[in-house]
Design a protein around this nucleic acid. Structure first.
Length: 608
DNA sequence: AGTCTATCGT
C-alpha cells in the first residue's frame, strides 16, 4: 500500500527533528570534516594589506565565476584564507565559493564548511547559505534532512525562496518520490510561494524519468499557457519521455511544434528522436533525421554515435554498428567503453563468445579499460552457453583486477547456476552474496525462485519466498506469479488458488501473466470449467486475455479432446487476431493424425 | 552581488 506523505505532515515530522535553532538538525548525520590544508599559510603572507585582500577576493570571484577553479584543494585554500581575514569577507563571497564546492560534488565538505562558518566564524546563515546546505543534503539523497533545514529556515524568520523549493522538488524527484514532488509544487503555489521555469523543468524531468510522460506533457502545457517559454531542454526531456513510452510520432510532433515556436532542436533533441525511431524499427526515418541534423550543422558526438551503435547492436545489425564505429573514428572520436560494451553484449547474446572475447581483448589493447558491465556481459554470455566454469573464472578475474561484482553480476551468475541444473549452488550464491556487500533485489529473487521451482524444488523455493515476505523487500506480482506457477507445476492447485485470491489484499494488481498461469494450471489438470471461469473472470475485471492465455486454454481443451470448445475458442482467437502457437499447433496435428475422422476441426483449420 | 536544473549511451 502506498502511503502518501503530504508536505505538511513532512513538515510536522521535521519539527521533531529540529528543536534547536542550529541549521544542523542532524546529530545522527556524521559529516566528515574537510582535511586541513597546509598551503594556505603561504597565501596568508601575501594578503596582509587591504589592497592585497581586495585583489585576492577579486581573484577568487573570478575563478569561481569563470569555472577555472578545478580542484577541491584549491577551493579549500581559498576558504581558509578567507576565514583568516579580518574583517571577514562578506557572506556573499563565501556563498560563491560554496556554490563551486557543490558543483564539484563535494557535498559533505560544503555542509561542514557552512557548519564551520557558523560555529567558528560566527557568520549568520541566510537563505542563500541554507539553500546550499539543502542542495547538498538533497544530492546526498538526504531529502528529509533538507526539509528539516527548511524548517529551521522558517524558524529563523528567513523566507524560503523559489530556489529553496526548486532544490527540494529536485531532491524528491531524484529520489524517485515524484508524487511528493508534485504535491510540493501544488503546495508551493497554493500557499503563495513562487515557482518558475526551473521549478517546472525539474518536475518535468522527474516525471519523465519515472515514466509519467503524460503528466509531464500536462505540466509542459501549463508552462506554455503561462507564457513561461519552456526551452529546448524541457522540450527534449519530454520528447525523450514520449519516445521511451513508444510514442515516437507524438515526440516528432512535439519537435515540429517546438520548431514552430522558433526553438531549434539541438544534438540531444535529435539523438533522442533518432534513438526512438530506431527502437521501433523506423530506420528509414531515423536515417533521414540524421541527415537533416547534419544538414542543420549539428554534428553527432561520441555519445550520440554510441546510441546508434547500441540500437544497431540490439537489433542484431552488427555490420551497420561497425560502420557507425568506422564513421566515429573517421570524425576523430575514439570508441569508449560504451562502444565496446554494446558489441560485446550483442556477441554474448548471439552465443558468439569467441567474438565477444576478441572485442574485449581489443578494447584492452586499445587502452580502454573494461568496466564491471563488460565483465558482467561476458559472464552472462558464458552462462548462456552453460559454461559456468568460464563464468566463475571471469568473476575471479574481475575481483582480482579490483572490481566489486554488483547485484547484476550476482544475479547473472545465480541464473547461470540455475540454467545448468545446479539450483542449490545458485541458492548458496544467493545466500552468500551479502558477504560481498551486495543485497539481492527483486530481479535476483525472481531468478532464484524461478530456478528452484523449475527444478522441482518447490519447498526450497517456498522457504526462501517466506523469508522474502518477512524481509523489507516489496514483493511484486512477478514474484508471486513465479510462486503460483511453481505451485501449479507441482500439482498444488488449491494452495496456488488460495495464494492467488490473497493477492488483491496484498495490494497487488493481478495481471494477464498471473491469470494465464492459473488458467494454465487448471487446464493442465483437465479442470477446464475452472479454467474457463477464470478466463471470463479476468475479462470482467478489466484484464484482457492475450494470445498466450488462449493458447494455454486451447491446449487444455485439445488434450481433453474437447473439440467443439476448442473450435469455439480458436474462432475467438482468429477474430481477435491472435495466432496459434507452436505447442498448440503440434497438439492439434497430433490429435488429427490419430483421429482421421474428425472433419470438423480439420475443416476449421484448413477450409476448402 | 550569492543559492537551483540542464535533456541522449552498456
Amino acid at each position: 500500500m502506498l502511503r502518501r506523505i503530504s508536505f505538511l505532515s513532512c513538515f510536522r515530522l521535521l519539527h521533531h527533528m529540529c528543536t534547536t535553532t542550529s541549521p544542523f538538525p542532524s546529530p545522527a548525520l556524521h559529516i566528515p570534516l574537510h582535511s586541513h590544508c597546509t598551503k594556505s599559510t603561504n597565501i596568508n603572507h601575501e594578503i596582509q594589506s587591504h589592497s592585497n585582500k581586495t585583489q585576492f577576493l577579486n581573484f577568487m570571484r573570478n575563478q569561481c565565476k569563470s569555472g577555472k577553479l578545478k580542484s577541491i584543494d584549491e577551493a579549500l585554500n581559498f576558504f581558509h584564507t578567507m576565514a583568516k581575514m579580518n574583517p571577514l569577507p562578506s557572506v556573499i563571497d563565501f556563498t560563491l565559493l560554496l556554490g563551486f564546492i557543490v558543483k564539484m560534488k563535494h557535498y559533505t565538505t560544503a555542509i561542514s564548511l557552512v557548519k564551520e562558518m557558523h560555529s567558528s566564524l560566527g557568520i549568520k546563515p541566510d537563505t542563500f547559505i541554507l539553500n546550499v546546505v539543502i542542495n547538498s543534503l538533497c544530492h546526498l539523497k538526504l531529502v528529509a534532512f533538507g526539509f528539516s533545514v527548511l524548517g529551521t529556515m522558517l524558524k529563523l524568520g528567513l523566507e524560503p525562496s523559489v530556489v529553496t523549493f526548486t532544490i527540494l522538488i529536485n531532491g524528491l524527484c531524484v529520489k524517485g518520490d515524484v508524487g511528493r514532488a508534485v504535491e510540493l509544487v501544488d503546495h508551493v503555489e497554493k500557499t503563495g510561494y513562487r515557482s518558475d521555469v526551473k521549478t517546472y523543468g525539474v518536475l518535468i524531468n522527474g516525471l519523465c524519468k519515472m515514466g509519467k510522460t503524460s503528466e509531464a506533457v500536462g505540466w509542459l502545457r501549463k508552462m506554455e499557457e503561462r507564457n513561461w517559454n519552456p526551452n529546448v531542454v524541457v522540450y527534449s526531456t519530454v520528447m525523450d519521455g514520449l519516445c521511451k513510452d513508444g510514442l515516437v510520432s507524438e515526440a516528432l510532433g512535439l519537435c515540429l511544434e517546438m520548431s514552430g515556436k522558433g526553438i531549434k532542436p539541438n544534438l540531444v533533441t535529435y539523438t533522442c528522436l533518432i534513438q526512438g525511431l530506431c527502437n521501433f524499427g523506423r530506420w528509414k526515418e531515423a536515417g533521414s533525421l540524421l541527415d537533416e541534423m547534419m544538414k542543420m550543422g549539428v554534428m553527432p558526438d561520441l555519445q550520440s554515435l554510441n546510441i546508434l551503435v547500441d540500437v544497431l547492436c540490439k537489433e542484431g545489425k552488427i555490420m551497420q554498428a561497425k560502420s557507425v564505429i568506422g564513421f566515429m573514428i573517421l570524425v576523430g572520436e575514439v570508441p569508449d567503453v560504451f562502444t565496446y560494451n554494446s558489441l560485446i553484449d550483442r556477441y554474448c547474446l548471439q552465443n558468439q563468445m569467441d567474438e565477444a572475447t576478441r572485442v574485449f581483448e581489443l578494447m584492452v589493447s586499445r587502452g580502454c579499460l573494461p568496466d564491471i558491465v563488460a565483465y558482467t556481459s561476458l559472464i552472462h554470455g558464458w552462462c548462456k552457453i552453460k559454461n559456468i566454469n568460464k563464468a566463475m573464472h571471469l568473476l575471479d578475474e574481475m575481483i582480482k583486477v579490483g572490481f566489486t561484482p554488483d547485484v547484476v553480476t550476482w544475479t547473472t551468475l545465480i541464473g547461470g547456476f540455475c540454467q545448468v541444473g545446479r539450483p542449490l549452488a545458485a541458492k548458496e550464491l544467493f545466500l552468500n552474496m551479502h558477504k560481498y556487500g551486495q543485497v539481492p533485489n527483486l530481479q535476483t529473487c525472481a531468478i532464484i525462485l524461478d530456478g528452484l521451482c523449475k527444478s522441482q524444488l518447490l519447498s526450497e523455493a517456498l522457504s526462501l519466498f517466506h523469508a522474502m515476505e518477512k524481509s523489507n523487500l516489496d514483493l511484486n506480482i512477478v514474484i508471486y506469479s513465479i510462486i503460483l506457477d511453481g505451485m501449479c507445476s507441482a500439482g498444488k492447485l488449491n494452495t496456488a488458488l488460495e495464494l492467488f485470491s490473497c493477492l488483491p489484499a496484498k495490494g497487488l494488481q493481478i495481471n494477464v501473466y498471473a491469470y494465464t498461469i492459473m488458467i494454465n494450471g487448471f487446464a493442465k489438470q483437465g479442470l477446464l470449467d475452472k479454467a474457463e471461469d477464470l478466463l471470463s473472470n479476468m475479462e470482467e475485471n478489466g484484464c484482457m486475455p492475450d494470445s498466450c492465455t488462449y493458447n494455454v486454454f486451447v491446449q487444455g481443451l485439445v488434450a481433453e479432446r474437447e473439440i467443439a470448445r476448442s473450435i469455439k475458442y480458436l474462432t475467438m482467437m482468429r477474430d481477435k487476431g491472435f495466432s496459434v502457437d507452436a505447442t498448440t499447433t503440434e497438439m492439434i496435428i497430433n490429435y488429427l493424425s490419430t483421429n482421421q475422422g474428425d472433419n470438423e476441426l480439420r475443416e476449421f483449420l484448413f477450409p476448402k
